[in-house]
Design a protein around this nucleic acid. Structure first.
Lengths: 343, 343
DNA sequence: CCATTGTGTTAAAACGTTTGCATAATCCAT
DNA sequence: ATGGATTATGCAAACGTTTTAACACAATGG
């Protein structure tokens, strides 16, 4: 049989309500009874039934991270586990559990999030993708359900979010290449519907414009967060007569694909092509040569996402809204040369 | 206000119990009322409160994956996300949610699992690590709580588990190198307290013995599942006068570290050193040269872990216990040479 | 000494379900 | 018609908590 609050009450010679108050550190409980009750609880190994508690308190001490179908490729990226790590660490620090949920198809996204919200399973949601016109964001916003976006959203002004300044990060990365003497710089982007892709594109363009450098549309290639995307982008760019000498790349995995592709066809990095990418996952160090990357503090992103969301669901603070995690350039061999010899 | 089963009942002109039975497809419900009730539910957007349901049914439709502290390094490995992917996919297929929990320190492992179990938060647990004498296994076994081990356990005969035949896998890997003409083969292992490490060691030794090849203790190095471990192992081995010409390596990340280390000091793979590792994560293809690896079907492991656990918590089948996922050698450049030129 | 304030405790209602038991309605065979 | 099965539904208790309101009692202040 499961041991309940009533058992504790009986053995301690008090009422269940008193035990409940002891547990929640109610101020008006005498020191003596508190000690007594705690002793009994310890002794018979009592643990409150969270379901019963949730039912009455309308609170679950559980957060969910919701992955829409298109985010599946995340699983091939160390970004994901690093984010989860930060997220779980912070959540468990406050006694929250993390649930990981995904919709099985693009179609049932809204159905899945609806079920999650309406069934009162979780107190808040962390949303991974920030696409334009995201129906999940729509729903959560409409329902006034606590959630936090990783990334930013242009459509709603007051959405809680944790993000990097991607425009600035990309500007910095591009500027770094310019400072190294590059004048012909390309950009390998991610899926165009992601706001992040667009922001990084913006920063790239801004840096070029400021330096009065050519902005060649042929040097801009879109793709996925996959190695093959990098490979394809590489082929495309290297087939041009008029090639860039350096590339800003949306993600480490893609950059990795590019480096490998270049090596395969006999070009070397950074001599024939300099590179800098984003995210600074373990992959950058695993590459040969190691890849320069913009560290966006993924662990921090996850950590802060949990933290802010918890604050919001507890209603502790009204200061929700946008939070920007600082980035940091990590220069490695892939962009270490000062004068490009390629092209 | 939240819409409850009573609202549905009222609007449909039936009792709450009837609605409940409609939801659970009780056989003795007339077609007419079922239709009527479903209509209302749809109309007012009713979703059952899972907490209330759990409270009475003593069932949560939730599984947890439990990570003891020492498994933190998992987060640096694509193994983890691939496993999670399979796990979540299968769970959500059966309407189960996945919770991801970790203990914050080695010390509170048992406290954390106790809380999880006793608070009735989940129906079953997936346990990642299989060390010898695992206190978490002890606890779960003692409590008769449904759980499934990834890996195997020697101490309890009847534990449910999903595993590879690591001895055979390692035997196959080693045999592959022998078939390529190698006679001097080393083994770079993982943490010695992991059963997996020991199993792979066994397979390695068996293959060598069968082929009457020398089993040089200097060629056996232990480490972690980290790139640096590979690097260190490489240094150690290359500093020997009497070197192996090929290595069996416990994990892709470690192998990656070795390849990179070798490249750095001017040796090349596979000409100076052949390699084969385990897990066949994306990393193997990202390496140059690509690394031969034993594919252990990580996604399948996660998928089956969920599947078997769900079966067990539902009490559907008594055929629990051990399940072995087949492995498969994937030969790439790192072991493609037939006659070693190194020394 | 009475009114007030403060302290410690409890009884009972509520949270939103499921389910055993009872009952009402329907059916079929005599 | 009659009576037993069979089928469909409802009542009410239960699940294990929290919380509101009420109460008993002690301490305080005028």
């Amino acid at each position: 049989m499961t041991v309940t609050i009533k058992d504790v009450a009986r053995l301690a010679g008090v009422s269940p309500s008193t035990v409940s108050r002891v547990i929640s550190n109610h101020p008006r409980i005498s020191k003596a009874t508190a000690v007594k009750v705690r002793e009994i609880m310890e002794q018979i190994g009592y643990h409150p039934n969270v379901m019963a508690k949730s039912l009455v308190s309308k609170t679950t001490s559980t957060l969910a991270i919701f992955l829409p179908r298109p985010a599946e490729e995340l699983f091939l990226n160390l970004f994901f586990s690093e984010f989860i790590r930060g997220m779980v660490a912070r959540a468990s620090k406050s006694g929250y559990d993390m649930m990981i949920t995904s919709s099985t198809s693009e179609h049932d996204e809204v159905a899945a999030i609806t079920r999650l919200v309406r069934s009162k399973r979780v107190d808040g949601v962390i949303l991974m993708s920030s696409r334009r016109n995201d129906p999940v964001v729509h729903y959560l916003e409409e329902q006034q359900f606590p959630f936090i976006l990783i990334g930013r959203n242009e459509e709603y002004p007051d959405i809680m979010s944790v993000d990097n300044d991607n425009v600035q990060a990309s500007y910095d990365a591009t500027k770094h290449l310019i400072d190294r003497g590059h004048t012909r710089i390309g950009f390998v982007s991610g899926p165009p519907h992601l706001i992040m892709s667009k922001d990084r594109m913006k920063g790239y363009e801004k840096a070029l414009r400021e330096a009065n450098l050519p902005l060649n549309p042929q040097w801009i290639v879109e793709g996925e967060f996959l190695q093959e995307s990098g490979y394809r982008a590489m082929s495309l760019i290297m087939s041009l007569l008029d090639r860039p000498t350096a590339l800003v790349v949306i993600d480490d995995v893609v950059a990795f694909g590019i480096v490998r592709g270049l090596n395969e066809i006999g070009y070397s990095v950074p001599q024939n092509m300099s590179l800098i990418s984003f995210n600074n996952t373990a992959l950058t160090e695993l590459s040969s040569p190691p890849i320069s990357s913009v560290d966006i503090s993924i662990y921090q992103l996850g950590y802060l996402a949990s933290q802010n969301l918890i604050q919001a669901v507890k209603g502790e603070s009204k200061e929700r809204y946008r939070m920007i995690v600082p980035h940091r350039l990590v220069v490695r061999d892939s962009s270490s040369n000062t004068i490009p010899t390629g092209s």
